[in-house]
């Protein structure tokens, strides 16, 4: 185990993993409770097109993905206003646009396929020092944002209309929040991969909702479950030479099944 920490790439992967293990469920709990779980999938596909654009144009891919996903997040907010009765339509439109752009760019420059594989499924070997700086800097900023606006985000998730009448600046907070979601997805891509990033936002939360006795407990428990999955997933994927994203998500699914099973047994006794 200690031998593992001697490698720079493992130190970076674990450090980045610990940060996204806090970020994903912390944002995910608000998404799940607002029934916006699919937004993660939508923005991650747009982020992929940003990565492709970055590789094609020679710009730092993660920065490009960040720009693309933040713009897409703002686009979802605008579209949600146009289709108030069909909120999920905005998510579907942006998801389709994201896949479309990514496919066109990938077919335009076939040589980028190898680079994209790591972004699609997550690869701990590919976390560079520049990625690490971005993940740490923005990650800490997002965690602070959620901590400071925790109570307002809670109220909006429970009852948006009530929050507005209580004098909470719902529109502004929603706008900030959607940008934060886009940032979280981009930062998590390196470790979990585009295709699985929304799973890390949803599955630990799903497990914590089974047993939590308060909102605070649900938030903390989902972070604990995510950390357990991420750290053990990175270690297992290193030793077994597996894609880190899939390993992490499978571990979180196993934890979810164990929690459901445990709850079932407790209810019977």
């Amino acid at each position: 185990m200690l031998e593992l920490l001697q490698y720079g790439f493992m130190q970076r992967a674990l450090m980045a993993g610990i940060i996204i293990g806090i970020l994903c469920p912390l944002i995910g709990i608000f998404l799940v409770l607002r029934r916006m779980s699919l937004i993660g999938d939508s923005l991650s596909h747009v982020a992929l097109s940003g990565v492709a654009a970055g590789i094609v144009s020679g710009v730092y891919p993660l920065a490009m993905a960040l720009v693309f996903s933040v713009l897409a997040a703002l686009g979802i907010e605008q579209l949600r206003k146009k289709y108030e009765e069909y909120a999920e339509l905005a998510i579907a439109i942006i998801l389709s646009a994201g896949i479309g752009i990514a496919v066109v760019l990938i077919s335009y420059a076939k040589s980028i396929n190898v680079d994209l594989f790591g972004y699609l499924f997550g690869n701990i070997l590919t976390v560079r020092s520049s990625d690490m700086r971005l993940i740490t800097g923005l990650g800490i900023l997002i965690i602070m944002f959620v901590k400071l606006l925790y109570k307002e985000l809670f109220y909006i998730a429970f009852d948006e209309e009530g929050a507005r009448i209580a004098g909470i600046p719902v529109k502004r907070i929603n706008l900030f929040f959607i940008v934060i979601i886009a940032m979280t997805i981009t930062l998590s891509m390196r470790i979990v991969g585009v295709l699985l990033v929304s799973s890390l936002m949803v599955i630990p939360v799903a497990a914590s909702l089974q047993v939590a006795k308060s909102f605070k407990q649900a938030a903390l428990l989902s972070v604990v479950i995510a950390e357990l999955s991420v750290v053990s997933g990175i270690i297992i994927s290193y030793y077994m030479e597996l894609a880190s994203g899939g390993t992490i998500v499978l571990l979180s699914v196993i934890i979810l099944l164990l929690v459901i099973g445990f709850k079932g047994v407790m209810q019977k006794t």
């Binding site: 400071l148 109570k151 307002e152 009852d159 004098g167 600046p169 308060s214 909102f215």
Partner: peptide, 24 residues
């Protein structure tokens, strides 16, 4: 409301104080 929402009675009632308490 969503009855699966993991919030206690205390957390729900306190929510209306958030505007008075202030952001951050």
């Amino acid at each position: 409301f969503n009855t699966g929402f993991p919030a206690t009675v205390e957390e729900i009632v306190a929510a209306n104080l958030f505007s008075r308490i202030g952001i951050f």
